[in-house]
Design a protein around this nucleic acid. Structure first.
Lengths: 334, 334
DNA sequence: TCGAGATGTGCAAACGTTTGTTTTACTATA
DNA sequence: TATAGTAAAACAAACGTTTGCACATCTCGA
């Protein structure tokens, strides 16, 4: 049987309340008594029962994290494990735990949020799923990773995606490119919309006309019609000389597609992309890619939600810097 | 304020205990009363407080899952997200939750297990980290994914790795190969030892002499000395014509390495590997690879630990079948 | 010498359930 | 008609903490 606070109290010859206060460094307990009690508690291997504790102070020490709808699909992307690691690190540092928002097959993030909220286990939420709709949060402190829809005033951490979109595009422009395509735009995801805005800004600032047909809303390129679109764009003699890709994986797929057309990267087409994945690093040529700092995104989100819980002052949004990794997939135009 | 069981009781004009029993389908409550109470509870939006519940029946509804030491490194491998999805699916079906074993940077799995056990939040454990040493489990029901060290009598789910190792090797032998290398052996991981045993068995059964220098204990190939070893093996005219790789990633890296030597796959060297990853599928050539069924591994592990908790009869080990995906990285020898 | 703070500790209620035991209200039997 | 028997529901204790309040002791100044 586990040792309880009463056992400790009896052993120390004091009341349970004194033990409780001693362990929480309550100032109403004298230094001497506190030290003695802590010693005894330690010796007896006392571990306070979290359930009892949570019952009275209405706070668990657990934070729920919610992934995009299909967990495995998304988790396979290196972004998420890294973010998760950041979340976990900070949670551990601050003595908290991470509960996975696991839903059944086919449940929406809203379902998962509801489930977590109902479970009664979580005191806060981190959403890794910034989609157009924000699920109802049941009054729980919550932080979303990525920018939530503008009209919501939800706490969030994010890169400045319009600025990174602009920077990526300008990087190509600075190297002489003027025919620049944007791959991977998906209006469902705010992040891609933001980057697209940056892309358009960069073009505008350099007086390059925007070409509607060169923003390609493809997502994973494992789809034949996606391939068709790309092929037709690059078979055209008036083809792009550079591409901003939303993700390394898309860039890799595009690489293969270009190869099949006899075009080589970066000689014929330059590629710049996002997420700085291992696969991108190992690609031939290695991809020039923005590291959006997923670890930090996760860490900040966790900091934030814990601050929220302890009612610390907290900005509505924290911005995490990104970092360009220059490798071999961009060449200046000749 | 949340609605409690007392509120429901008052509304229904019965005692809290009756409500409690009604909600748990306790036979001591008559059908009529039960139905009426359930209706009322529903209408009032009653959600039983898990903390109170756990406090009395000494069971949480949460299972801790423990990853190998460096979470992000391992989570990046597609095996884990898939396993996690299996775990999550079954947990959700059976009304349970998954707590991530998040440790601070540099904590061992033992530290993480201790943390989870001490936390008081978990009623069971799933370990995705089958290493030589099994951490102490604090009396918690636990299931490990992968084969734990033989002397332990711990519940586990696993593929039959010696048999899959043998099958992989025989697959190559059947296609005329007799000079077969094994890449990725690491004695720290039982899974690779098992497959190696299968590899040796297959060789023995076909009367092919075992060559000590052809089991290469490299792990991730991002190490220069690893490269050296491989180069020296394949520069030798008496080089292997086929390789069994422990993981698609290693096969992919090996592919690149072979290319740099002017050797092509599968014409010069055949490759068979494990884990059937997306990257392997997209490789050129696409890899012939065993799917070890990580989803099922996770699902079974969760089933098992939940059975253990509810004290159902439960086999010490459940074996999950693997499946060969034949693609283009193996050719018969000419 | 008394009373007014400080200071340190204990008492008991509360958190929201579950569950063993008791009570109540029927029903059927003699 | 009394009585055993049974089904249904209520009572109350328990789970292990936290915390407001009361209480005791001590110190110090008036």
């Amino acid at each position: 049987m586990k040792v309880t606070i009463k056992d400790v109290a009896k052993e120390a010859g004091v009341s349970p309340s004194t033990v409780s206060r001693a362990l929480q460094n309550n100032p109403r307990i004298s230094q001497a008594v506190r030290d003695r009690i802590r010693q005894i508690a330690d010796d007896m291997g006392f571990r306070p029962n979290q359930m009892a504790r949570s019952l009275v102070n209405r706070q668990t020490r657990v934070i729920g994290v919610v992934f995009p709808a299909n967990l495995s699909h998304s988790l396979s992307h290196p972004f998420y494990p890294k973010a998760l690691q950041g979340l976990g690190q900070v949670a551990a540092e601050r003595n908290h735990y991470v509960l996975m928002g696991t839903g059944k097959e086919g449940q929406s993030t809203t379902d998962v949020v509801n489930l977590l909220a109902d479970s009664g286990y979580v005191s806060g939420l981190v959403l890794l799923a910034a989609q157009e709709e924000l699920p109802p949060l049941h009054g729980l402190p919550a932080v979303v990773i990525g920018r939530p829809p503008t009209e919501s005033d939800c706490y969030h951490v994010d890169n400045n995606n319009v600025s990174v979109g602009e920077e990526a595009t300008r990087y190509l422009i600075d190297r002489g490119h003027r025919k620049i395509m944007l791959l991977g735009y998906d209006k469902q995801f705010v992040v891609t919309s933001d980057r697209r805005k940056g892309y358009e800004q960069a073009l505008a600032k350099s007086g390059i006309p925007f070409r509607r047909e060169w923003v390609v809303p493809t997502r994973f390129l494992n789809d034949d019609t996606d391939q068709e679109v790309l092929l037709s764009i690059f078979r055209d003699p008036d083809r792009p000389t550079a591409v901003v890709c939303m993700d390394d994986n898309q860039a890799i797929a595009l690489c293969a597609c270009l190869q099949s057309l006899g075009l080589s990267v970066p000689e014929d087409v330059s590629l710049i992309s996002f997420n700085n994945t291992m696969a991108g690093k190992l690609n031939n040529p290695p991809l020039t890619s923005f590291d959006v700092n997923p670890y930090q995104l996760g860490a900040s989100a966790m900091e934030m939600v814990l601050d929220l819980i302890s009612e610390k002052e907290c900005p509505l949004c924290v911005e995490v810097p990104f970092l360009l990794k220059e490798r071999g997939s961009v060449a200046p135009i000749n």
